[in-house]
Amino acid sequence: MSEQTTIRMPDTSKLVVSSSPHYHDMGSIPKIMFTVLAALAPAVFASIYFFGWRALLVLSVCMVSCAAIEALLCRLMRRRISIGDGSALVTGLLLGMTLPVTSPLWMCIVGSFIAIGLGKMVYGGLGGNPFNPASVGRVALLLACPSAMTTWVTVSGCALNKWVVDATTGATPLELVAQNQPGPGFWSLFLGNIGGSIGETCTLALIVGGVFLIALKIIRWQIPVFFIGTVFLITGIAYMVSPCPKFNPMTHVLSGGLMLGAFFMATDMVTSPLNRKGAVVFAIGCGIITTIIRLWGSYPEGISYAILIMNALTPLIDRYTAGRPFGVARKASQKNA
Protein backbone atom coordinates (compact mmCIF):
# COMPACT_ATOMS: atom_id res chain seq x y z
CA MET A 1 0.00 0.00 0.00
CA SER A 2 3.02 2.28 0.11
CA GLU A 3 2.50 2.93 -3.56
CA GLN A 4 -0.99 4.19 -2.86
CA THR A 5 0.24 7.15 -0.91
CA THR A 6 2.16 8.55 -3.86
CA ILE A 7 -0.85 8.39 -6.16
CA ARG A 8 -2.62 11.68 -6.43
CA MET A 9 -6.38 11.36 -6.60
CA PRO A 10 -8.48 14.17 -8.00
CA ASP A 11 -10.19 16.69 -5.82
CA THR A 12 -13.87 16.02 -6.42
CA SER A 13 -15.20 19.02 -4.56
CA LYS A 14 -14.90 21.47 -7.44
CA LEU A 15 -16.26 19.40 -10.28
CA VAL A 16 -18.66 20.72 -12.86
CA VAL A 17 -21.56 18.64 -14.06
CA SER A 18 -23.25 19.42 -17.33
CA SER A 19 -25.09 17.75 -20.11
CA SER A 20 -23.24 15.93 -22.88
CA PRO A 21 -21.52 16.61 -25.23
CA HIS A 22 -18.48 17.63 -23.24
CA TYR A 23 -16.53 18.63 -26.33
CA HIS A 24 -17.14 21.77 -28.31
CA ASP A 25 -15.53 22.97 -31.49
CA MET A 26 -14.68 26.15 -29.56
CA GLY A 27 -16.40 28.34 -32.11
CA SER A 28 -18.17 31.36 -30.70
CA ILE A 29 -20.18 34.37 -31.77
CA PRO A 30 -17.30 36.85 -31.26
CA LYS A 31 -15.05 34.62 -33.37
CA ILE A 32 -17.56 34.70 -36.21
CA MET A 33 -18.17 38.42 -35.98
CA PHE A 34 -14.51 39.38 -35.84
CA THR A 35 -13.80 37.11 -38.79
CA VAL A 36 -16.49 38.96 -40.74
CA LEU A 37 -14.83 42.23 -39.77
CA ALA A 38 -11.50 40.88 -41.00
CA ALA A 39 -13.14 39.80 -44.26
CA LEU A 40 -14.41 43.34 -44.76
CA ALA A 41 -10.94 44.83 -44.25
CA PRO A 42 -9.90 44.68 -47.96
CA ALA A 43 -13.05 46.55 -48.93
CA VAL A 44 -12.35 49.15 -46.24
CA PHE A 45 -8.83 49.70 -47.62
CA ALA A 46 -10.20 49.97 -51.14
CA SER A 47 -12.74 52.55 -50.04
CA ILE A 48 -10.07 54.69 -48.39
CA TYR A 49 -7.95 54.36 -51.53
CA PHE A 50 -10.70 55.55 -53.84
CA PHE A 51 -12.69 57.97 -51.68
CA GLY A 52 -10.12 59.50 -49.35
CA TRP A 53 -9.72 59.41 -45.59
CA ARG A 54 -13.21 60.70 -44.84
CA ALA A 55 -14.47 57.21 -45.73
CA LEU A 56 -12.65 55.90 -42.67
CA LEU A 57 -14.26 58.59 -40.54
CA VAL A 58 -17.77 57.65 -41.73
CA LEU A 59 -17.12 53.96 -41.09
CA SER A 60 -15.64 54.59 -37.64
CA VAL A 61 -18.49 56.85 -36.60
CA CYS A 62 -21.02 54.21 -37.66
CA MET A 63 -19.19 51.43 -35.80
CA VAL A 64 -18.67 53.41 -32.63
CA SER A 65 -22.22 54.73 -32.55
CA CYS A 66 -23.69 51.26 -33.19
CA ALA A 67 -21.68 49.81 -30.31
CA ALA A 68 -22.54 52.73 -28.03
CA ILE A 69 -26.25 52.52 -28.83
CA GLU A 70 -26.29 48.79 -28.23
CA ALA A 71 -24.55 49.23 -24.88
CA LEU A 72 -26.98 51.98 -23.91
CA LEU A 73 -30.04 49.96 -24.88
CA CYS A 74 -28.75 46.87 -23.09
CA ARG A 75 -28.34 49.04 -20.02
CA LEU A 76 -31.88 50.41 -20.34
CA MET A 77 -33.26 46.90 -20.87
CA ARG A 78 -31.26 45.70 -17.82
CA ARG A 79 -29.49 42.98 -19.75
CA ARG A 80 -25.98 41.75 -20.05
CA ILE A 81 -24.15 44.25 -22.25
CA SER A 82 -23.65 42.34 -25.43
CA ILE A 83 -21.29 44.50 -27.47
CA GLY A 84 -18.47 42.07 -26.76
CA ASP A 85 -19.90 39.67 -29.33
CA GLY A 86 -18.92 42.12 -32.09
CA SER A 87 -22.21 41.98 -33.93
CA ALA A 88 -22.87 45.69 -33.40
CA LEU A 89 -19.49 46.48 -34.96
CA VAL A 90 -20.35 44.36 -38.01
CA THR A 91 -23.71 46.11 -38.36
CA GLY A 92 -22.03 49.50 -37.99
CA LEU A 93 -19.36 48.72 -40.57
CA LEU A 94 -21.89 47.35 -43.06
CA LEU A 95 -24.17 50.35 -42.55
CA GLY A 96 -21.26 52.73 -43.08
CA MET A 97 -20.28 50.91 -46.24
CA THR A 98 -23.70 51.51 -47.75
CA LEU A 99 -23.51 55.30 -47.22
CA PRO A 100 -21.94 57.82 -49.63
CA VAL A 101 -18.61 59.21 -48.53
CA THR A 102 -20.10 62.70 -48.22
CA SER A 103 -22.77 61.65 -45.70
CA PRO A 104 -23.02 64.06 -42.78
CA LEU A 105 -22.00 62.47 -39.49
CA TRP A 106 -25.34 63.07 -37.81
CA MET A 107 -26.84 60.89 -40.51
CA CYS A 108 -24.43 58.09 -39.60
CA ILE A 109 -25.53 58.30 -35.98
CA VAL A 110 -29.25 58.37 -36.83
CA GLY A 111 -28.74 55.44 -39.17
CA SER A 112 -26.91 53.49 -36.45
CA PHE A 113 -29.70 54.19 -34.01
CA ILE A 114 -32.30 52.89 -36.45
CA ALA A 115 -30.19 49.87 -37.38
CA ILE A 116 -29.39 48.80 -33.82
CA GLY A 117 -32.39 50.15 -31.96
CA LEU A 118 -35.23 49.49 -34.37
CA GLY A 119 -33.52 46.80 -36.40
CA LYS A 120 -32.20 44.63 -33.62
CA MET A 121 -32.70 45.55 -29.98
CA VAL A 122 -36.48 45.94 -30.09
CA TYR A 123 -36.64 42.31 -31.10
CA GLY A 124 -34.61 41.25 -28.08
CA GLY A 125 -31.09 41.58 -29.44
CA LEU A 126 -28.96 39.35 -31.62
CA GLY A 127 -30.83 36.30 -32.81
CA GLY A 128 -34.30 37.75 -32.52
CA ASN A 129 -34.24 40.28 -35.34
CA PRO A 130 -36.23 39.31 -38.42
CA PHE A 131 -34.53 41.91 -40.64
CA ASN A 132 -30.90 42.58 -41.36
CA PRO A 133 -30.14 45.58 -39.11
CA ALA A 134 -27.72 47.24 -41.55
CA SER A 135 -30.31 47.04 -44.34
CA VAL A 136 -32.95 48.50 -42.04
CA GLY A 137 -30.65 51.42 -41.22
CA ARG A 138 -29.80 52.05 -44.84
CA VAL A 139 -33.39 51.89 -46.08
CA ALA A 140 -34.57 54.23 -43.33
CA LEU A 141 -31.89 56.75 -44.29
CA LEU A 142 -32.68 56.35 -47.97
CA LEU A 143 -36.33 57.19 -47.29
CA ALA A 144 -35.57 60.01 -44.85
CA CYS A 145 -32.73 61.79 -46.64
CA PRO A 146 -32.90 60.73 -50.29
CA SER A 147 -30.75 63.55 -51.57
CA ALA A 148 -27.88 63.05 -49.09
CA MET A 149 -28.01 59.34 -49.74
CA THR A 150 -27.69 59.73 -53.49
CA THR A 151 -25.05 62.43 -53.75
CA TRP A 152 -22.09 60.73 -55.31
CA VAL A 153 -18.60 62.02 -55.83
CA THR A 154 -16.54 61.43 -58.94
CA VAL A 155 -13.74 58.97 -58.43
CA SER A 156 -10.49 59.05 -60.33
CA GLY A 157 -7.84 56.69 -59.10
CA CYS A 158 -5.87 56.98 -55.90
CA ALA A 159 -7.20 59.39 -53.29
CA LEU A 160 -4.91 58.47 -50.42
CA ASN A 161 -3.49 61.98 -50.30
CA LYS A 162 -6.91 63.60 -49.93
CA TRP A 163 -9.42 63.97 -47.12
CA VAL A 164 -12.24 63.43 -49.56
CA VAL A 165 -12.19 63.21 -53.32
CA ASP A 166 -13.25 66.26 -55.32
CA ALA A 167 -16.74 67.21 -54.47
CA THR A 168 -17.94 67.29 -58.02
CA THR A 169 -21.04 65.20 -58.06
CA GLY A 170 -21.22 62.31 -60.42
CA ALA A 171 -23.53 59.45 -61.14
CA THR A 172 -23.18 55.79 -60.25
CA PRO A 173 -22.93 53.30 -63.08
CA LEU A 174 -26.40 52.06 -62.21
CA GLU A 175 -27.85 55.56 -62.50
CA LEU A 176 -26.17 55.83 -65.87
CA VAL A 177 -27.56 52.56 -67.15
CA ALA A 178 -30.98 53.36 -65.74
CA GLN A 179 -30.97 56.32 -68.10
CA ASN A 180 -29.84 53.94 -70.79
CA GLN A 181 -26.34 55.42 -71.07
CA PRO A 182 -23.29 53.16 -71.27
CA GLY A 183 -21.58 52.52 -67.93
CA PRO A 184 -17.84 52.42 -67.21
CA GLY A 185 -15.63 49.66 -68.52
CA PHE A 186 -14.98 46.26 -66.90
CA TRP A 187 -11.76 47.11 -65.10
CA SER A 188 -13.17 50.29 -63.55
CA LEU A 189 -16.13 48.32 -62.30
CA PHE A 190 -14.05 45.41 -61.07
CA LEU A 191 -11.50 47.47 -59.21
CA GLY A 192 -13.98 50.05 -57.92
CA ASN A 193 -12.85 53.13 -59.81
CA ILE A 194 -16.48 54.31 -59.97
CA GLY A 195 -18.97 56.36 -58.01
CA GLY A 196 -21.08 54.76 -55.32
CA SER A 197 -21.38 54.07 -51.62
CA ILE A 198 -18.20 53.70 -49.57
CA GLY A 199 -17.93 49.97 -49.41
CA GLU A 200 -19.76 48.75 -52.46
CA THR A 201 -17.57 49.79 -55.33
CA CYS A 202 -14.50 47.57 -55.19
CA THR A 203 -15.74 44.22 -56.47
CA LEU A 204 -12.31 42.64 -56.17
CA ALA A 205 -11.94 43.40 -52.46
CA LEU A 206 -15.47 42.22 -51.70
CA ILE A 207 -14.97 38.95 -53.56
CA VAL A 208 -11.70 38.35 -51.71
CA GLY A 209 -13.47 38.88 -48.38
CA GLY A 210 -16.46 36.79 -49.41
CA VAL A 211 -14.35 33.87 -50.58
CA PHE A 212 -12.44 34.05 -47.31
CA LEU A 213 -15.73 33.70 -45.37
CA ILE A 214 -16.93 30.86 -47.59
CA ALA A 215 -13.62 29.05 -47.14
CA LEU A 216 -14.01 29.33 -43.36
CA LYS A 217 -17.61 28.11 -43.67
CA ILE A 218 -18.94 31.19 -41.96
CA ILE A 219 -21.34 31.94 -44.78
CA ARG A 220 -23.04 29.55 -47.16
CA TRP A 221 -21.70 29.71 -50.72
CA GLN A 222 -25.23 29.18 -52.03
CA ILE A 223 -26.40 32.67 -51.12
CA PRO A 224 -23.85 34.84 -53.01
CA VAL A 225 -23.59 32.42 -55.93
CA PHE A 226 -27.31 32.14 -56.53
CA PHE A 227 -27.99 35.80 -55.76
CA ILE A 228 -25.41 37.10 -58.22
CA GLY A 229 -26.17 34.31 -60.66
CA THR A 230 -29.87 35.19 -60.76
CA VAL A 231 -29.15 38.86 -61.39
CA PHE A 232 -26.71 37.94 -64.14
CA LEU A 233 -29.11 35.48 -65.71
CA ILE A 234 -32.13 37.78 -65.82
CA THR A 235 -30.23 40.83 -67.06
CA GLY A 236 -28.36 38.59 -69.49
CA ILE A 237 -31.60 37.28 -71.01
CA ALA A 238 -32.94 40.82 -71.22
CA TYR A 239 -29.68 41.94 -72.88
CA MET A 240 -29.92 39.19 -75.46
CA VAL A 241 -33.48 40.16 -76.26
CA SER A 242 -32.69 43.86 -76.50
CA PRO A 243 -28.99 44.73 -76.32
CA CYS A 244 -29.09 48.22 -74.83
CA PRO A 245 -26.87 49.52 -71.98
CA LYS A 246 -29.82 49.39 -69.61
CA PHE A 247 -29.69 45.60 -69.56
CA ASN A 248 -25.91 45.17 -69.64
CA PRO A 249 -25.39 42.22 -67.25
CA MET A 250 -21.78 43.13 -66.57
CA THR A 251 -22.67 46.55 -65.19
CA HIS A 252 -25.49 45.05 -63.15
CA VAL A 253 -23.36 42.40 -61.55
CA LEU A 254 -20.24 44.46 -60.92
CA SER A 255 -21.72 47.72 -59.75
CA GLY A 256 -24.06 48.91 -57.07
CA GLY A 257 -24.40 47.09 -53.79
CA LEU A 258 -24.77 43.62 -55.28
CA MET A 259 -21.39 42.26 -54.17
CA LEU A 260 -21.61 43.80 -50.72
CA GLY A 261 -25.22 42.68 -50.33
CA ALA A 262 -24.73 39.19 -51.69
CA PHE A 263 -21.59 38.37 -49.73
CA PHE A 264 -22.15 40.21 -46.49
CA MET A 265 -25.75 41.30 -45.97
CA ALA A 266 -27.90 38.55 -47.45
CA THR A 267 -25.67 35.98 -45.72
CA ASP A 268 -26.42 37.39 -42.26
CA MET A 269 -27.05 34.24 -40.22
CA VAL A 270 -29.91 35.54 -38.19
CA THR A 271 -32.05 36.64 -41.07
CA SER A 272 -31.29 34.05 -43.73
CA PRO A 273 -32.79 30.55 -43.94
CA LEU A 274 -31.42 27.72 -41.87
CA ASN A 275 -30.62 25.08 -44.43
CA ARG A 276 -28.99 24.90 -47.84
CA LYS A 277 -32.18 24.41 -49.80
CA GLY A 278 -33.73 27.42 -48.13
CA ALA A 279 -30.61 29.47 -48.79
CA VAL A 280 -30.92 28.78 -52.52
CA VAL A 281 -34.57 29.83 -52.59
CA PHE A 282 -33.73 32.92 -50.55
CA ALA A 283 -30.85 33.92 -52.83
CA ILE A 284 -32.85 33.43 -56.02
CA GLY A 285 -35.66 35.52 -54.53
CA CYS A 286 -33.20 38.28 -53.63
CA GLY A 287 -31.82 38.20 -57.18
CA ILE A 288 -35.25 38.41 -58.81
CA ILE A 289 -36.45 41.29 -56.63
CA THR A 290 -33.18 43.19 -57.12
CA THR A 291 -33.39 42.90 -60.88
CA ILE A 292 -37.05 43.88 -60.98
CA ILE A 293 -36.39 47.01 -58.93
CA ARG A 294 -33.31 47.92 -60.98
CA LEU A 295 -34.86 47.39 -64.39
CA TRP A 296 -38.43 48.43 -63.86
CA GLY A 297 -38.58 50.19 -60.48
CA SER A 298 -38.14 53.87 -59.87
CA TYR A 299 -34.91 53.36 -57.91
CA PRO A 300 -31.71 52.56 -59.74
CA GLU A 301 -30.71 50.27 -56.85
CA GLY A 302 -32.74 47.65 -55.02
CA ILE A 303 -30.39 45.41 -53.04
CA SER A 304 -31.42 46.48 -49.56
CA TYR A 305 -35.12 46.30 -50.41
CA ALA A 306 -34.66 42.86 -51.92
CA ILE A 307 -32.84 41.65 -48.82
CA LEU A 308 -35.47 43.05 -46.47
CA ILE A 309 -38.34 41.52 -48.46
CA MET A 310 -36.66 38.13 -48.50
CA ASN A 311 -35.83 38.46 -44.78
CA ALA A 312 -39.54 38.77 -44.17
CA LEU A 313 -40.09 35.57 -46.13
CA THR A 314 -37.35 33.64 -44.33
CA PRO A 315 -39.59 31.95 -41.73
CA LEU A 316 -41.87 30.80 -44.51
CA ILE A 317 -38.94 29.48 -46.56
CA ASP A 318 -37.64 27.70 -43.48
CA ARG A 319 -40.95 26.07 -42.91
CA TYR A 320 -41.29 24.73 -46.43
CA THR A 321 -37.68 23.68 -46.88
CA ALA A 322 -37.27 21.92 -43.53
CA GLY A 323 -36.18 18.41 -44.41
CA ARG A 324 -37.72 15.23 -43.21
CA PRO A 325 -35.78 13.74 -40.33
CA PHE A 326 -33.90 10.51 -40.99
CA GLY A 327 -36.30 7.64 -41.39
CA VAL A 328 -39.48 9.69 -41.28
CA ALA A 329 -41.85 8.68 -44.06
CA ARG A 330 -42.81 11.41 -46.50
CA LYS A 331 -46.52 11.21 -45.74
CA ALA A 332 -46.09 11.34 -41.97
CA SER A 333 -43.92 14.41 -42.25
CA GLN A 334 -46.43 16.26 -44.40
CA LYS A 335 -49.28 15.40 -42.12
CA ASN A 336 -47.52 16.85 -39.15
CA ALA A 337 -46.05 19.94 -40.74
Partner: peptide
Protein backbone atom coordinates in the same frame (compact mmCIF):
# COMPACT_ATOMS: atom_id res chain seq x y z
CA UNK B 1 -7.19 18.21 -10.91
CA UNK B 2 -9.87 17.63 -13.50
CA UNK B 3 -12.86 19.93 -13.92
CA UNK B 4 -15.09 17.18 -15.19
CA UNK B 5 -15.30 13.46 -14.68
CA UNK B 6 -17.27 11.69 -17.37
CA UNK B 7 -18.67 8.23 -17.42
CA UNK B 8 -18.39 7.23 -21.07
CA UNK B 9 -17.03 9.23 -23.96
CA UNK B 10 -16.89 13.00 -24.37
CA UNK B 11 -19.82 13.25 -26.76
CA UNK B 12 -22.45 11.12 -25.07
CA UNK B 13 -21.03 10.32 -21.65
CA UNK B 14 -22.57 11.50 -18.43
CA UNK B 15 -20.69 13.85 -16.17
CA UNK B 16 -20.51 12.63 -12.60
CA UNK B 17 -19.35 14.25 -9.40
Amino acid sequence: DPLKIISGGPMMGMSVY
